[in-house]
Write a protein that binds this DNA or RNA. Structure first.
Lengths: 149, 149
DNA sequence: GCTCTTGTCTTGACTCGTTCAAGAGCAAGG
DNA sequence: CCTTGCTCTTGAACGAGTCAAGACAAGAGC
């Protein structure tokens, strides 16, 4: 795979060192939205050859804290990462196969994003996860189940 | 702790056998909202004496699938359980100390089920987690406590 | 280009929440 | 009371993620 200078600029813009593992991880996250860590490790290794899982974990943490990627953890699933950051979008997760899709912020007025009683908390983010059934699992409902019911 | 016949009725109503561990776990979940599994195990053992952690895990799963308790898993936290079921309420989680509080849905029914673009998914539940800072951590924040702990 | 500094990657072991498996125990119905 | 089958105990195993120490390389300065 050819080097993507664009991603290097992104890393530099975040004041992060430009290394091959970092570019590869960032590229993998862009190429595979909502991929879990293991998938990303395999994608990175397909790109670079041999990379330790620890490096991927470390890079993902660095990218997450730098705000370049976002970490999502639906219940019953492992951590997943996506490169879409900055916009306030949410996710819909299939209960049967675990598929994840993006959902733009539901309503303009966002009724649920305004807590009726915040208990004194200072709220800075509202995370919404829609649970349901994806089109594939809806048609063939007795398909293979990956997650817990 | 005195026996709570009410909980026995709840278990019977769910077609579950009434055993001491089950009553104790259900009671512990009622007494300690948003408690993690380990806290519940300790609470149950304080009540009954010696109970295997496996029994608690098994009971919690049975109660969850029966709809008597609800399992919540904020990112970066272990599984927690609450007895408030049936109403569509959400949670606010403190980024610093992990404290959880209930938040009633802004609207009575379930408006959060309305996604602007459902990608063909059949959505049956919307889970909302508000992230912020609890009152206690807000106060200590002024002492220079910063960063994502 | 060369060296230095500092942050990054490799290797390997380890933690901890959770689950699996086999057998003993007990609740509920007859 | 006895049977039946679910439930609890015991003990081990699993796996995502983390910790620690040292080798290594990116970027800065010369």
């Amino acid at each position: 795979m050819t080097v993507t200078p664009d991603l290097e600029q992104v890393l530099k813009g975040a004041e992060l060192r430009v290394t091959r593992p970092r570019v590869a991880v960032l590229s993998a996250v862009h190429a595979h939205p909502h991929a879990d860590t293991d998938s990303l490790i395999r994608a990175v290794r397909a790109d670079l050859g041999d990379v330790s899982h620890q490096a991927v974990y470390d890079v993902l943490r660095a990218l997450t804290s730098a705000g370049l990627v976002r970490r999502i953890e639906p219940s019953g699933s492992v951590a997943r990462y996506e490169a879409r950051v900055g916009d306030n979008h949410h996710h819909v997760v299939c209960r049967h196969c675990g598929a994840i899709a993006d959902v733009d912020c539901a309503v303009d007025e966002t009724p649920c994003l305004t807590a009726s009683n915040d208990n004194g908390f200072v709220i800075d983010e509202a995370e919404v996860i829609y649970w349901g059934t994806c089109p594939a699992c809806s048609t063939s409902d007795r398909h293979r189940r990956r997650g817990n019911t």
